[in-house]
């Protein structure tokens, strides 16, 4: 009984290492294929369209609502201290440092990450990847690398857009609905948000999350078992693993950047 448990633990650990190893090898292969992909910008543009542009509605609507909620909640708390002029700071710092990168990454994993995993899984199931190999075309170069680059260009842009729209949402709720003074909303924000410490660090988070989310989605799709069940598992795991990875990394990055 005890031996069996220990054996299971050992088996689990070994398979964890094996999966991490395979994912790392995959990552290196994709990175190696990246330079040659830049010679074919059309492939990348197509992926930016399906990964980035098609996620835009979701990102803008979510960003605006998240910003409005921040505006309302921030106002309710700050007004007790007579400090509602600081609403702009609260909304902007929250969005720029945390919610912008994290919520964008979670939405991205749900919208674009799962779609990427399913698309590649399906290409594998229908032997499209295999047939490319037989046509002497490397699927890593032709299929995976353009999506990787497209995702890594798209997601930081989406993060920036989410953050900016969120701040506008906060302004709409705070200034528009609750009557906070517009001048102090912006000026206090400007005085307390730093381009390097806050905005740049937030963008670094956005880029890191982009690499992780796209990597997970592409790997899960590429390694999917070529069955309907395998694809459904791959999409689920993409979303779940991305969420864990993003939240865990966010804690580490926040500790490194802001403490």
């Amino acid at each position: 009984m005890v031996t069996a448990t220990i054996q299971n633990l050992g088996h689990w650990t070994l398979s964890l290492f094996e999966r991490m190893g395979r994912a790392s090898i995959f990552f290196v292969r994709v990175l190696a294929a990246v330079p040659s992909t830049f010679t074919r910008p059309r492939l990348i543009i197509k992926e930016i369209y399906s990964i980035g542009v098609l996620s835009l509605t979701l990102i803008i609507v979510s960003g605006f609502f998240v910003g409005m909620v921040l505006g309302l909640q921030g106002y309710v708390t700050l007004v007790d201290f007579g400090a509602e002029e600081s609403l702009g700071v609260v909304v902007a710092i929250t969005l720029v440092r945390e919610l912008g990168p994290v919520v964008t990454a979670l939405l991205f994993a749900g919208r674009a990450g799962s779609a990427l995993a399913a698309e590649i899984g399906l290409m594998k199931t229908t032997e499209q990847l295999s047939s490319m190999e037989m046509m002497a075309v490397d699927p890593i170069k032709r299929v995976i690398a353009p999506r990787f680059i497209g995702g890594i260009i798209s997601m930081p842009l989406l993060t920036i857009i989410f953050t900016a729209v969120g701040i506008l949402g906060g302004r709409f709720a705070g200034v528009g609905l609750l009557g906070v003074d517009e001048g102090s909303f912006w000026s206090q924000m400007q005085a307390n948000v730093d381009l390097v410490d806050d905005v740049a660090n937030g963008m670094i988070k956005g880029v890191v999350f982009a690499v992780v989310c796209v990597w997970i989605a592409l790997y899960k799709g590429y390694e999917a078992t070529p069955t309907a069940e395998g694809i459904s598992l791959a999409t689920t795991q993409t979303v779940v693993n991305s969420a864990f990875a993003v939240l865990g990394l966010d804690f580490i990055l926040t500790a490194l950047m802001f403490v």
Binding site: I160, I161, T163, A164, I167, W186, Q190, V193, L195
Partner: peptide
């Protein structure tokens, strides 16, 4: 994206 970045740089931060 560039407009949003511009806003973050000029209007939100210092």
């Amino acid at each position: 994206g560039i407009l949003a970045l511009f806003m973050l740089a000029m209007k939100v931060s210092n």
